[in-house]
Design a protein around this nucleic acid. Structure first.
Length: 279
DNA sequence: CGCACATCCTGTGTGC
DNA sequence: TGCACACAGGATGTGC
């Protein structure tokens, strides 16, 4: 589910909880979550290490250790759950009627951080260093960082012929934008998602930059108020619907021109847009 | 290299 | 009700 605002909110909330804590143990309940690494590798590398911080780039969350780092990616449905103790973990993890699904658990003195993804698309990996961390090196500039400037966007746009929507989802160009906020940013910029990236003039590129940054900032505000608690597996960020203008609004009127919001397919995924005022 | 496409999983909603 | 199918906020590997 999460895109940049959601993962940023998770990173900020998690940081004070685990910073300075030592990992006492690692339990992997579903080995698929660590593929292609093995649970044993993860456990051996992480057990006994101290957390020095929590960081993020694009949609990746990093638990930085005194030696190496843990990389987490939530894909569609992954989430974090905090349990008060190892005893609670044994009682609740993957137990029949009311238990919580847990794939990987990191045990600390004051509680247990669980990575959970029932759909098993999310991943947890260990890397020796940021330099050797493959995803970290493949990502483009983070969409929420100060390095993401109008100039940079203009240069990236000029070097791609792909449709704007697909361009925005390319994490090696700009990291962190997903299906929701790409649709929203294009609506705010009043740009047609099918336009080739390199067809934008300077003014349009500036509008797109503004659309991306403003929608991500607004979403981050929503994600931080209220902040995640990591308690309820059913929990998800509240109030995001309020800021959405096109996403999942097929058939409803455009908030700008009144025409019908359409759902079109691009790159095998849904794009929501107003074909009347997005030019 | 860029791009289209299949693939990894499972749950939920929809229409017949 | 049962069933088949579409769809889901993502990324990667393949073949062209």
């Amino acid at each position: 589910m999460p895109e940049v605002p959601e993962v940023e909110a998770i990173a900020r909330t998690l940081r004070p909880i685990v910073a300075g804590q030592r990992v006492r143990g690692v339990q992997v309940f579903h080995a698929i979550a660590t593929l292609p690494q093995t649970p044993a590798e993860l456990a051996r590398s992480v057990t006994g290490r101290r957390v020095v911080g929590v960081s993020r780039k694009g949609k990746y969350l990093f638990v930085d250790l005194d030696r190496g780092l843990i990389e987490m990616h939530f894909r569609f449905d992954g989430q974090l759950i905090w349990l008060g103790s190892a005893k609670k973990l044994l009682q609740q993890a993957n137990k029949k009627p009311d238990g919580v699904h847990v794939d990987v658990a990191l045990e600390f003195a004051k509680g247990v951080l669980c990575f959970a993804d029932g759909r098993h698309l999310g991943r947890v990996h260990f890397w020796e260093s940021a330099e050797t961390c493959v995803p970290l090196n493949q990502l483009g500039v983070d969409a929420l960082s100060s390095q993401f400037t109008t100039d940079l966007l203009r240069r990236e746009l000029a070097s791609s012929r792909r449709p704007l929507k697909e361009f925005l989802l390319d994490q090696s160009r700009i990291a962190g934008i997903g299906n929701i906020y790409s649709c929203e940013a294009l609506w705010h910029a009043a740009l047609n998602p099918r336009r080739p990236a390199n067809s934008l003039n300077d003014k349009e590129a500036a509008k797109l930059h503004k659309g991306i940054v403003s929608v991500l900032r607004r979403a981050l505000e929503c994600c931080l108020n209220p902040a995640p608690t990591f308690r309820d597996p059913e929990w998800w960020f509240q109030g995001l619907e309020k800021i959405l203008r096109v996403y999942q609004r097929e058939g409803q009127p455009c908030r700008r021109c009144g025409a019908e919001i359409r759902r079109i397919e691009q790159g095998g995924r849904s794009t929501y847009c107003c074909l009347n005022c997005q030019k």
